[in-house]
Design a protein around this nucleic acid. Structure first.
Lengths: 247, 247
DNA sequence: CGAGCACTTGATCGCTTTCAATAGCTGTGG
DNA sequence: CCACAGCTATTGAAAGCGATCAAGTGCTCG
């Protein structure tokens, strides 16, 4: 037991991640069954949600906040292998333990399902396992995109890549995708950024300062980032996306 | 059209990857349906199987040989993001194009399914999509393990990690897992190893030579590797596996 | 025998790490 | 109110690892 349970339990139909989480395809009776086996759980920033190699008795979705998956070597080197934002799924059906530590990087609310009933439901309702397959394929794509970042990009490009990813997934941005300017809060400390990027925190700090000095980003405090020109940031990231201007 | 079709078409029941591929759970009638929509295709070493962003008209399994998934930046830097060994699945149901180049690194035989009929079957037979989910989750684990290698390991550890992975998945090893000594052929050029490890080919060559000099591996020719002590190699890889000796 | 290719080895360069000092912020307690 | 601890972040100087540039080796195949 490493966290108090907190019963906020809104209806699934009011849930902010309803249309993107593992339950996205469920309706009516299926949703009612999920509603029966679900419960909410809150974690404070810094708390461990699941220890690697621990038995997991639940799976679930991040409702709000940011969590991270990290892998560690015995000498202390650690690598973050996944960033879990709202609607992302935690846990692996069909396997006992987690392969990674799952940690709350900000305060987190999770919608949990007890593992056994969830696995039973998966076997019986194709909507859930199809959605989970789709989400897993997306995560695999994201992991592979990240392999390019880790293996081939420079420190400066790595920082720009991370900022682009966070900007792209920030809910505040989705509303106004037409605008070139973007602003968001960094949900990660410099050390967490370093663990994600395979760098040291000093290098992260230096490269953030360099991007600021060059006008690619503007910092308001340590954590609030303004990107005056998103295309410029993508260019710095080494992505050939071209801002979507085809032809 | 970039490859001649070659009709070797054995029965699925005689197939060497029958018990590990996406079809592993299918029996009887399901297997017959698959048999109807499948065809074999051969690729020579070096040939591109699928170009990134190309429309894919098939998905399939590697029957024999080794293929690789690679991602490239416009300036030529490339990163291998997956190594496809026999039984591994190629293609993403539900999406038009591939996000990566798929290349044959040795001569490859693929068991292909036309995409539309395969997707239809997925919707109708849970055995296939459940197996695909399981395989995708395994690939995600592998990708994340690789992120630790790319982000945090030294060049020497990276080489040792790659050799361990190849040794572990080599079919010749599975027969005698008790023995500490292991031998296998490298299916990759130094350049391909470099692309997998996020290194240059010169660094790969130097570190392979160093591992040879230190007696961790013995080379017979450029491509045949003998590992006298697998535990030693795992130690060099920085894995805490401990060879399985608990306590 | 020479072209082409995969690989090895050497010398030097430069980016990121490492080690170290300092700044800014927040909360605590005398 | 100020002093101080504890934490996150910044910045500087030096060291080290892998990249880059450059030959050179050994093999296969025409």
């Amino acid at each position: 037991m490493n966290a108090p349970s907190k019963s906020i339990a809104p209806n699934c139909s009011d849930c902010p991640i309803r249309h993107r989480a593992v339950c996205a395809r469920c309706e009516g009776e299926e949703l009612e069954r999920l509603e029966e086996i679900k419960y909410y759980r809150s974690f404070e920033a810094g708390q461990t949600i699941i220890w690697s190699n621990d038995k997991m008795d639940f799976v679930g979705s991040v409702v709000s906040g940011v969590a991270s998956l990290t892998q560690a070597m015995e000498d202390g080197r650690t690598q973050m292998v996944g960033l879990l934002l709202p609607s992302d799924f935690v846990g692996r059906p069909g396997r006992e333990g987690s392969a990674y530590d799952v940690t709350a990087t900000t305060d987190v609310v999770m919608c949990c399902f007890r593992k056994k009933p969830f696995e039973k439901m998966m076997r019986e309702t194709p909507h859930i396992s199809h959605r989970l397959l789709e989400m897993t394929l997306d995560e695999l794509d994201a992991a592979r995109e990240w392999m390019l970042v880790l293996g081939r990009k420079t420190a400066r490009e790595k920082i720009a890549s991370l900022l682009s990813i966070i900007a792209r997934r920030d809910p505040a941005q989705v509303a106004q995708p037409a605008s070139k300017a973007v602003a968001f809060d960094l949900p990660l400390t410099r050390e967490a950024m370093a663990d994600y990027l395979g760098l040291t925190l000093e290098t992260v700090s230096r490269q953030v300062s360099a991007l600021k000095r060059d006008g690619v980003i503007v910092l308001e405090g340590k954590r609030h980032v303004v990107v005056p020109d998103m295309d410029r940031l993508l260019e710095e990231a080494g992505d050939d996306s071209d801002g979507g201007h085809l032809i």
